[in-house]
């Protein structure tokens, strides 16, 4: 990843029949960056991608490519290529012709086209599939063809719209690693759309969390996970215990009727805050030794850890722990001040 900005959205807005899809979006994308637009369905991430790809026109705002305005540049003239959600392979062509499509339009020499297509097929591990019809391929193979078809044109930016959504878990994990490797090897900027937070965390250089057409937070995966900016981000990325808090002085927050030390400063004039605590940051200790006591209400085995619902002080705590406490037992809960995240209350939505 370099510091050179390749793509920039400035005050971009888009409405569908008065329903906002994107509201005043500002975003820049650096060369060779793996940037992920993450959010629930309807958050505007796909709209953003379609505006960059040229399939949708913004109602207002500017789209800059290497500093030049490309608002009115039709899709076929843009130096970006897209991997579509349902692959959108050409059903009347075989694998080779699908991948060669863009090259044939550019009227490249036949030999060069063949060379390029073969190289791509090697890259996506489909060397013997040239003559196969696309209908005969599995979802994962179709996916690879779609990626090869886009990559063969050596785009400056590759747009990927939930490309792994239709694959099963194991294949998805494999493809995540492959995609990431390809991106690093080829040095192409990836703009990746997904609603899968785990996928976003494991692949991206930068994550853009969106909701209701508004960017909630931009940051590295670590930033987004460890320092969510508001309760929405905290809830969307991983699981969280979110409590209503009250804070009038720095490093001291009041919730569930008690004052507890923390490491954040207060927001002047805004005493009501969200207190976010990750389930894995709540330690289960013998009753009486923690910050508060609670009764274990349910235990679910999740593989690496147990997920427990523990009721304490009128709040149902979600706790992830490798040590299991039996249902109905009384335990203590302890949270390190470092793990208490204080957030400004979201504006009422």
């Amino acid at each position: 990843m370099t510091d050179k900005i390749i793509l920039e959205l400035k005050n971009v807005s888009k409405y569908y029949d008065d329903t906002p899809a994107l509201v005043n979006m500002n975003l820049y994308i650096r060369k060779n960056e793996f940037i992920t637009l993450l959010g629930p369905s309807g958050c505007g991430k796909t709209t953003t991608l379609r505006i960059i790809g040229g399939f949708e026109e913004a109602d207002s705002g500017d789209l800059l490519f290497e500093g030049r305005n490309i608002n009115n540049l039709p899709a076929y003239k843009r130096k970006v290529n897209t991997v579509f959600q349902k692959y959108a392979l050409f059903p009347h062509m075989n694998v080779f012709d699908n991948i060669a499509f863009g090259q044939k339009i550019k009227k490249l020499d036949k030999k060069i086209i063949q060379e390029n297509v073969r190289r791509m097929l090697r890259l996506v591990n489909l060397e013997d599939f040239e003559k196969r019809s696309v209908d005969s391929l599995s979802g994962g193979q179709q996916q690879r063809v779609a990626i090869a078809r886009a990559l063969v044109n050596e785009p400056e930016v590759l747009l990927l719209d939930e490309p792994l959504g239709a694959l099963d878990l194991k294949l998805r994990k494999e493809m995540q690693i492959e995609l990431k490797n390809m991106q690093q090897k080829l040095g192409i900027t990836f703009v990746y759309v997904t609603h899968d937070q785990e996928e976003a965390l494991s692949m991206s250089d930068t994550i853009v969390v969106m909701n209701n057409g508004i960017i909630q937070q931009i940051g590295t995966p670590e930033d987004i996970y460890n320092e969510p900016k508001n309760a929405f981000v905290a809830r969307f990325i991983g699981e969280s215990n979110i409590l209503d808090g009250f804070m009038t002085e720095d490093f001291l927050v009041e919730f569930l009727g008690r004052k507890i030390k923390c490491v954040d400063k207060c927001f002047p004039g805004q005493p009501n805050v969200d207190v976010v605590i990750r389930p894995e940051d709540v330690k289960v200790v013998p009753a009486g030794e923690g910050m508060l006591d609670g009764i274990v209400r349910s235990v679910t085995f999740k593989g690496v850890h147990y997920e427990m619902m523990i009721e304490g002080q009128g709040f149902a705590w979600m706790v992830h722990s490798t040590i299991m406490a039996p249902v109905d037992s009384k335990v203590g809960l302890r949270v390190d001040p470092n793990d208490i995240h204080i957030m400004r209350k979201e504006a009422a939505t």
Binding site: N81, Q85, K86, A88, F90, F101, N153
Partner: peptide, 15 residues
């Protein structure tokens, strides 16, 4: 005809 197939053709440089 799937709209995204047409979009894919545009995306790959087809006028």
């Amino acid at each position: 005809i799937d709209e995204s197939v047409i979009e894919a053709a545009q995306d790959l440089g087809g006028n």
